[in-house]
Design a protein around this nucleic acid. Structure first.
Lengths: 118, 118
DNA sequence: ATGGAACATCGATGGCTGTCAATATAGATG
DNA sequence: CATCTATATTGACAGCCATCGATGTTCCAT
């Protein structure tokens, strides 16, 4: 399996060719490292938030762009964004009054590759 | 995005070439369909269970093979296997006294592709 | 400075979930 | 039938989590 695991991608990681999940049993440490990332994504609102940010032209979106897409309070959206940010799936940058979030596509790619690739 | 989504894979689905997550915003329905699958995987024990089964030679394992790998009670392992089975990530087959679980690699592949592919 | 706008934090609450011990079921074996 | 073995189900409990309203913080404009 790739040694890096999302938080710190190695520049040229010796990526395995097939789903690491099926290649060899995941170690306890690996499982406890990956599970929180999946848990962060395992919510319909956060999934849509990630997708909204990632699919945005320019790859980033401010909170005001996101809040309108949901029938939820602003604190709730802020909470979900915090979860995604703290797990390393979203980058955050403050510009003036606005806060812009950017998807960590590298992290998503690594996660996706770990789950399964064709 | 692929129209099928795990439960019923279309034989020749017109798979999108790049991470659907970043391609266009996930719909509410899609998000609510995918999130439970991620939630099922978003637990260290279940992640290891999936990996143990998937990496097994022959692609299947009986419960007795799995229980030993954890410091958990048999009902707890049984519970986790049930969760994975009910979400469609594990197939189940009873043979005599033993129950064999088999990983749905097609489902894993679709999930992985949706999260992100290189 | 004063006010307002964008976003975050706090505290509370109802619901979900991982775990266990106890018990049930079902198949094999004597 | 009686018993043992493999697995599932049940009921209970503690801890986590999504959500909200209220409030705080930071920055811009007037």
């Amino acid at each position: 399996m790739s040694k890096s695991l999302l938080p710190l991608l190695t520049p040229a990681s010796p990526v395995a060719c097939c789903s690491p999940l099926a290649q060899e049993p995941l170690s306890v440490e690996q499982a406890e490292l990956v599970a929180p990332l999946l848990k962060a994504l395992a919510d319909p609102v956060r999934l849509r938030l990630m997708s909204l940010v990632a699919s945005r032209k320019g790859g980033e979106a401010c909170v005001c762009d996101l809040t309108d897409a949901f029938d939820l309070s602003q604190p709730t959206i802020s909470h979900h964004l915090k979860v995604l940010h703290e797990t390393g799936l979203l980058d955050r940058e403050k510009r003036g009054v606005w806060v812009y979030y950017r998807a960590r596509t590298d992290a998503l790619a690594e996660l996706g590759a770990l789950i399964g690739q064709p």
